[in-house]
Write a protein that binds this DNA or RNA. Structure first.
Length: 732
DNA sequence: GTTCTAGAAC
DNA sequence: GTTCTAGAAC
């Protein structure tokens, strides 16, 4: 961080020592062909302020370079007192995040969004020749098309002081004039600018934009001046108050709120609170287009809900339909009440399943889709609405999981963070379900065979709810055997879903070993693992500590503390057990409990020492279930994961999936059971998810970029039993 | 555990 | 074209 501070001791000689130049970072955002480079050239041509243009297309001796090269050149330019253009597409929040950390707190960050129509960008890119990044011709069109769905407009909450939106050439020219006349000692007003056009067409666009909700829930501060005006106008016109429950409702939403004063829920008022209870919102399967008998369907829904409410812990199931007049909703509501189903775990709800949080204040992390067998968008109803709202990323993610679906089955699709449903509604997974069809106009009609139909509908709900249970469980830290047992029950039967199928089979497998664990607890397990030469480094330290004095931080009769040679976070030390014959956690038995406690205490001491130095850190102490390096060692690792050594999925997942066994849980399991059940290693190849907000990310760079700014609270499981060590928890 | 690198993904 | 992953070698 220090290296990025501008050296204020040596400002460039300006002749005016009193007035300091405040260089700014101006992040351009736009598709290829939107005119970013031209914008920079024009501003630099007329600006009295010293500028440096950091262009990723040419940064590497005229060739395209990397983001890190851009960052390093930008740091140097800022040191020289120059303001910096970040000339790259920067279309997603992740792509911009690192540039917002440039300079010191007094370095203003501006964004100029060249939000020109993709068609125009494509036609410009295709036509141009001699482009610096060699992005021209047909290739350019493909690249632009790929980028369009990934576009995320910048927000002030990302860390920008000022954002200028330009939607056409005229507004681009205005922005060039503003920055062209922006003197070295001038300052520009903060806030969002642009999108001021008030004609109907533009308003519709803005209304669409208004529907997007900041996941952090503080959208209010980010509305542009014009957007605020429009919102106020709507509120004035309709004569109603903005709903307390969510963000800024669209016109459509306001209409609904006028009609529906109270949300239709059967549960207590706590149901709608913006909490983090895992919630599945599901539509009634097969009762719309597939014409399944409503009485029979409602019986099955209530039957299956009753079966699952006992298995979902704190989680909730919510049956959703669009209208108050929904017959299926009232049938289910009454039958659920008759059966005294816990209304905090199951209720019916009126709303659009794609806008439950933004319109109705109901946070649902998982939504079910009444899919078609091809798992394709369209058709109408819930399926069309969900695919439309989730954008192309859902289609792509679905294709990766499955191509078709049989009646009675479901498939779980983790929703990429680029999906608007993820950002706007907080949906992390979509479960596609295919129910039985009774409509002769649709494929696989059962022609009134309700014996078969009911059987398939039951299967569909079972598969859906089990899928939901598996999501809930996979997001918890696996600690107790009880949890594992529940997970065993939660095996999702989704076929056509190899990844998930494999995942659950592995759970099953892991559970079997843990159950067997009680039987083999006193047997000396022969791990029969051979250790390659490179796995011996830690063992060598323990065997001959004197030889490794340079790396040893601390030593006692039982343990040696060293820095991890390739730290995966700002602070990362290892507490090595000195005992002979303890290669890994698999070798630990009851007689080692006191050693484990010593290791934990030493680890805690080091975590607290690091916390004294930096209160913003937090730590986890734990073991890898299948370590690569020989000699039992406890990781003490800060949760920033800010390290150049964290390079791949295995690195990430080894600290952020159940592959990482918290020391407190290990001690308890060895005390209770006598050993640690072997876990499978498939956790290492699981999808990449943020350890705080659990969002999914396509690759390591994107994940790292995300975690550099994600400040979501840690999952509740980590906050329990002292798994997470932070300054708040140490009584300081 | 890391490094290297082919080839997939973008 | 570059970026990124994943598997082999160590």
């Amino acid at each position: 961080m220090e290296s990025m501070e501008i050296d204020r001791e040596k400002p460039p000689s300006t002749g005016e020592e009193k007035n300091e130049i405040n260089p700014i970072v101006l992040v351009l955002m736009g598709l290829p062909g939107s005119g970013k480079s031209t914008f920079c050239d024009e501003v630099m041509r007329i600006s009295p302020r010293p500028w440096a243009r950091v262009c990723q297309d040419t940064i590497n001796n005229g060739k395209a370079g990397t983001k890190n090269q851009c960052l390093s050149i930008a740091v140097n330019a800022l040191r020289d007192g120059k303001s910096v253009f970040i000339d790259r597409c920067n279309i997603s929040r992740e792509q911009r995040a690192d540039f917002l950390k440039l300079g010191g707190p007094q370095t203003e960050k501006h964004a100029v969004v060249l939000d020109l129509p993709p068609k125009l960008c494509i036609s410009r890119s295709v036509k141009r020749t001699g482009h610096e990044g060699n992005l021209q011709g047909g290739k350019a069109a493909a690249v632009v098309n790929q980028m369009v769905p990934k576009k995320e407009l910048p927000k002030l909450s990302e860390g920008f002081n000022r954002i200028t939106f330009c939607k056409d050439e005229k507004e681009v020219k205005e922005a060039i004039n503003v920055y062209g006349s922006f003197g070295p000692l001038d300052s520009l007003p903060s806030g969002c600018f642009g999108q001021k056009n008030s004609d109907t067409k533009i308003q519709l666009g803005i209304m669409k934009f208004l529907k997007k909700v900041d996941p952090s829930g503080n959208a209010g501060s980010e509305l542009t001046v014009s957007q605020k005006l429009i919102t106020n106008e709507i509120e004035k016109d309709s004569g109603i108050q903005r709903a307390k429950i969510g963000s800024h409702p669209s016109g459509e939403a306001l209409e609904k709120l006028e009609k529906d004063d109270e949300p239709d829920i059967t549960s207590n008022s706590g149901a709608i609170a913006g909490d983090n209870i895992p919630t599945l919102a599901f539509p009634s399967i097969s009762t719309a287009d597939f014409q399944f008998n409503l009485e029979k369907a409602s019986d099955i829904i209530v039957e299956k809900v009753e079966e699952f409410v006992s298995r979902i812990g704190k989680a909730r199931l919510v049956l959703v339909d669009l209208s108050h007049g929904s017959k299926i909703l009232s049938l289910v509501k009454n039958k659920a009440a008759q059966k005294n189903i816990d209304s905090s775990k199951f209720f019916t709800f009126v709303g659009d399943i794609t806008q439950l949080r933004s319109q109705r204040g109901l946070q649902c992390n998982v939504i079910a889709n009444a899919a078609n067998w091809r798992l394709k968008p369209g058709g109408g109803g819930v399926n069309a609405a969900i695919f439309k709202a989730a954008g192309s990323s859902l289609e792509i993610a679905t294709k990766e999981r499955a191509v078709t679906l049989s009646p009675g089955k479901s498939v779980i699709v983790p929703l990429p963070s680029s999906s608007p449903l993820f950002a706007g509604e907080g949906v992390t997974h979509v479960i596609h379900v295919l129910g039985p069809n009774m409509n002769p106009q649709r494929p696989d009609c059962l022609k009134d065979d309700y014996v078969k139909g009911c059987k398939i509908l039951r299967e569909a709900y079972t598969s859906l709810f089990e899928g939901f249970v598996s999501i809930v469980k996979s997001q918890e830290v696996i600690t107790k055997n009880d949890d594992l047992k529940a997970k065993r029950e939660a095996v999702c039967e989704s076929e056509n879903n190899k990844k998930y199928k494999g995942f659950h089979e592995d759970f099953e497998h892991g559970v079997s070993s843990s159950m067997d664990g009680t039987k083999i607890q006193d047997k000396k397990v022969n791990t029969s693992k051979t250790w390659a030469p490179w796995t011996q480094a830690l063992h060598n330290v323990v065997t001959d500590p004197d030889k490794h004095k340079n790396v040893v931080l601390d030593m006692s009769d039982d343990v040696i503390v060293i820095n991890d040679a390739y730290p995966k976070a700002q602070r990362h030390v290892l507490v090595l057990a000195r005992a002979d014959g303890l290669d890994s956690i698999a070798d630990v038995r009851r007689e080692h409990v006191s050693l484990l406690k010593t290791m934990h205490d030493v680890g805690l001491k080091w975590a607290e020492k690091f916390l004294d130095e930096n209160k913003s850190l937090s730590f986890r102490l734990g073991y890898h279930s299948a370590p690569s390096m020989r000699q039992l060692h406890l990781h003490v690792i800060s949760q920033d994961f800010n390290s150049s050594h964290l390079k791949n999925k295995k690195h990430w997942n080894s600290f952020n999936t159940p592959f990482f066994l918290d020391s407190v849980d290990v001690i308890k399991e060895v005390e209770d059971v006598g050993n640690i059940a072997s876990k499978n290693d498939k956790f290492l190849s699981m999808e990449l998810r943020c350890h705080r907000c659990r969002s999914a990310h396509p690759n390591i760079p994107r994940l790292k970029s995300h975690i550099s700014y994600c400040q979501a609270p840690f999952p509740s499981a980590l906050l329990q039993n002292g798994r997470l060590v932070s300054s708040e928890g140490t009584g300081c």
